[in-house]
Computed example of a mutant assay.
Amino acid sequence: MLNVILSIVGVVFGINWGGMAGKSINLTSLSIYALIIGFTGSIFSLLTSKMIAKSTMGLQMIDIDNPSTNLEAWLVSTVRKLANRAKLPMPEVAIYEGDPNAFATGPSRSSSLVAVSTGLLQLMNKKEVEAVLGHEMTHVANGDMVTMTLVQGVMNTFVVFLSRVIGWAVDRQVMRNDSDAPGAAYYVTSLILDIVLGFLAGMVVAAFSRWREYHADAGSAMLTGSPENMIAALQRLGSITPEELPGPVKGFGVSGGIGSLFATHPSIEDRIAALRVLQK
């Protein structure tokens, strides 16, 4: 998104960001520019993920040293048990009002947050909730928040780099611009490719996210001792259509958008089929 905004600004004001598209193209400068633009947004999102979740989702944070209700005490005890099995520091734990779902977020394994919705607690029994928590703790154990940041940053970098290299080639080789400054073809081509390649990059990121979900389901089966409860939890989720989580955490919920190349989660049926293989 940042690279698209900069491209639009470049088109409107004729700004050649970094001075990389003159008569010759400076690939070193372009690479540095692409890396900075590619990773800035994703790293910022990672570092602020917990803060954004707390400020936008109405999380009711649980005092893990002094839970106030039996439900809170059970949640803290269950998360602590799973954290110990996964050899992880105890994360923050929260409940929020919403459709059945849960998510994990945070910039690192030692600074993570696990939250479950009231809808999920009402829909599932304790064994199923424990399986969902095992799924989320596996996301934390696998470092999925950091990995997704790196994948997104790498894809953004390639989008920025390729769009400008191709934009330069069109401007200089096709449109025969021989001035010192880049022509309109450079800006327009770069902008269009930022959008087109951005969509393709989004498909790659979504495919990687779906792959992570299979591993998180398998991790839940390992932490809880059996895939059966995770299968039961997914079957319950398959009977409803929960709302998607907000952007910063939607890739780390137990369920998410499905049915397209941009889906962050595989279909419930495919996830259950993969878990049944573990039963054999």
Rank of each mutant, 00 (worst) to 15 (best):
M1Y: 15
N3G: 08
I5F: 15
I5A: 13
I5L: 15
V11A: 08
V12I: 13
F13H: 09
I15C: 07
I25H: 10
S29Q: 03
L35D: 02
G38E: 04
T40V: 10
L47G: 08
T48S: 12
A53L: 08
Q60S: 07
M61G: 01
I64V: 15
N66C: 06
P67V: 09
S68E: 13
N70H: 04
N70G: 10
V79H: 08
K81G: 00
K81H: 07
N84R: 15
K87H: 12
V93C: 07
Y96F: 13
E97Q: 12
G98V: 06
G98A: 05
N101P: 04
A102P: 06
F103N: 04
F103E: 02
S108Q: 04
L113H: 07
V116N: 00
L120M: 09
L121W: 12
K126I: 02
K127P: 00
A131F: 06
H139C: 00
H139K: 11
N142W: 05
N142G: 00
G143W: 07
G143C: 09
M145Y: 12
T147F: 14
V160G: 04
F161N: 02
F161K: 03
L162M: 09
W168I: 00
V170S: 01
D171R: 01
Q173F: 08
V174F: 12
N177M: 09
P182A: 00
G183Q: 07
G183Y: 04
A185P: 00
L193S: 13
D194R: 01
D194M: 13
L197Y: 09
A201G: 09
M203L: 14
V205K: 15
A207K: 15
F208I: 12
W211P: 02
E213N: 09
E213P: 01
H215R: 15
A218C: 04
A218I: 05
G219V: 07
S220V: 03
L223Q: 01
E228S: 09
N229Y: 03
M230Y: 01
M230Q: 04
A232L: 14
A232M: 10
A233M: 03
L234M: 11
Q235A: 02
G238W: 12
G238A: 03
S239V: 08
K250W: 09
F252L: 06
S255H: 03
G256T: 05
I258N: 01
A263T: 12
E269Y: 05
D270A: 13
R271T: 03
A274H: 15
A274G: 10
V277W: 08
